[in-house]
């Protein structure tokens, strides 16, 4: 049923539930961010990895590997 056809109390209840679950999702994601990403970020920093290319380099270019079109188009990664 479209949102506009719902009776007012149901519509309000739906909005409350929606807000609750999106709040829940926010809390879970924040917990995950600090619990899981913090050690990962620390390890990454220790390893000296430079995934965003922020360190000095002799060029801004990165070579691209040659691709076989069939292999290339089959995957999402």
């Amino acid at each position: 049923m479209p949102e506009t056809e719902l009776p007012e109390p149901l519509r309000r209840a739906k909005a409350v539930l929606h807000a609750f679950f999106s709040f829940e999702a926010d809390v879970l994601l924040a917990a995950f961010y600090y619990l899981a990403l913090a050690p990962t970020a620390w390890l990454v920093r220790l390893s000296g990895r430079d995934g965003l290319g922020l360190k000095d380099a002799p060029t801004g270019w990165t070579a691209r590997e040659a691709v076989d079109p069939a292999e290339h188009m089959a995957g999402q990664g």
């Binding site: 926010d26 994601l29 924040a30 961010y33 600090y34 990403l37 913090a38 990962t40 970020a41 990454v44 990895r49 995934g51 965003l52 922020l54 995957g75 999402q76 990664g77």
Partner: peptide, 26 residues
Amino acid sequence: EKPFLKFERILTGCVETFPRSGPLFR
């Protein structure tokens, strides 16, 4: 485009800019 590669880029960015990337991550 390649959704998994794009997702990997976003995750990498969030990890490498931790802890400033919290809202972007969520």
